[in-house]
Design a protein around this nucleic acid. Structure first.
Lengths: 254, 254
DNA sequence: GCTTAAGTGCGTACATCGTACCCGGTTCAG
DNA sequence: CTGAACCGGGTACGATGTACGCACTTAAGC
């Protein structure tokens, strides 16, 4: 597995496990583990040492069992990842008092909630969710957010597109952020040292006069943080969606 | 290497190779390979069989040489990846006739250009560019785009943030798109079959009445393509940036 | 209570990866 | 002509996911 994808295992098997559809067999010895404990252990390993360190051997060692024992509970690593993803997606506390909040507050809350979850589980944004498995927590979260966006009067497809754009943006910035943090640990080179290493060559090239615009940039041009990008991008996207939602006479494609 | 990152090798070494600062040693036999041929071969392998199939062994085999011979030219796989990234970023044909185009046309052109490059080299958006190496082609592209955005009168930092948001968005959607395409090949399960596999469980859960909003969604809610998301998101972002650039009396607070 | 089939725990083995290390052959500076 | 520097590349190591098979445990059927 070069990169980690959702939905890379047996989809039906994953769904059965997600929705708790397994029936306990009657014969044979009682299992010493539970699915829950395995998923928890996997999340702990990934939280502590990163997605790259998440291996079946590590999870088993964390539980004090043999590696191959895990395969009695989970078909493979792909399915385990799907279970981890739905686990950290919830549960959502469905506060009925917030029903009346506007679309903008709803999307902003979604964005900030996802951001904080990514900070707590840095491996989450590193998983490519091209084929998301619809587990209980993901479905519940979707239900909640769509319900609160309904009053905008947009089409269902437009609602889902709005959510996709906002959530995709947040996950992307979060991934960049955690990648940067982990790059420091992985390489032993701090962000500052990395850019400092490029400076000599950069300065040399700027002095050639081939890049006049870049050479004349302000000193503080690149001093923003990932949080700054998050705020800038979120404002931009919400402003852009306002044109669509509030029919601001803009040339929206519909 | 679980995931592929830019700037994961020796930064100084990569920069020397990128800017062609190696001096040919006088002694010893003439090299049978060139850096260019190795980078080209690596790109061909990645284009044809995906980033996961890009290995030193495959590149060497493609060139008809022993695996370890590559290490005479490139310090390691990380540095090779950096060279590949700058290679496909250019060269840009610097058309002076387009200087006068507005900021919106400039960013839209950037977005569509990046998108097309990602379609030609599907591995490109799969590389996490947390620590981009500033090679000649990347620098030239940056110079060109910043020069064309200067007339907006925004601060240099805001210009770079605009570029970050647009480029980050395009790369993200492109990655999702190519991941979806490759998931079909990797798993042998088409996108349709994947969703069809989830349907029985979904229908069952919708019938429980726990998710009334989702159960009532239009049939065509999820029928959009990645191109649709690209267009929707691009319009949204450009509309949002218009609020910033044109200082518009747009409904910012919503 | 005995047999037997199912289930559990897990050790071993294999293919794949990047690359450290080493050796033999080649080329030119002195 | 000698020796240092360089090229090509074979071998080996530790890591990964997991297929396979074996020993042990349990409860159903008699």
């Amino acid at each position: 597995m070069t990169t980690d994808y959702s939905g890379s295992g047996d989809v039906s098997k994953s769904l059965e496990l997600l929705w708790g559809m397994q029936q306990r067999p009657t014969r044979g010895p009682k299992p010493g583990l539970t699915l829950e404990r395995i998923v928890d252990a996997a999340i702990e390993v990934a939280d502590a040492d990163g997605l790259a360190a998440l291996s079946m051997r590590r999870v088993a060692a964390h539980l004090g069992v043999g590696t191959m024992s895990l395969y009695r509970y989970v078909p493979g690593k792909g399915e385990l990842l799907d279970l981890m993803l739905d686990r950290v997606a919830g549960p959502v506390d469905d506060d009925p008092g917030e029903e009346s909040a506007g679309w903008r507050a709803t999307l902003e809350e979604l964005a900030r909630g996802t951001w904080q979850m990514c900070m707590k589980h840095p491996w989450y944004p590193q998983v490519d969710q091209v084929r998301p498995l619809l587990g209980p927590n993901n479905i519940a979260g979707m239900e909640r957010i769509v319900r609160r966006l309904k009053p905008t009067g947009l089409s269902d497809q437009q609602l889902v597109l709005m959510i996709s754009v906002v959530d995709g943006f947040v996950t992307t910035i979060a991934r960049s952020h955690v990648n940067a943090l982990q790059a420091e640990q992985r390489t032993g080179i701090s962000e500052e040292d990395f850019w400092a290493a490029q400076e000599p060559v950069l300065v040399k090239m700027m002095e050639t006069g081939r890049f006049p615009t870049l050479a004349a940039l302000d000193e503080n041009t690149f001093t923003f943080s990932y949080e700054d990008v998050f705020e800038f991008g979120l404002t931009t996207i919400l402003d852009g969606l306002a044109v669509l939602v509030e029919g601001g006479g803009a040339p929206a494609t519909g």
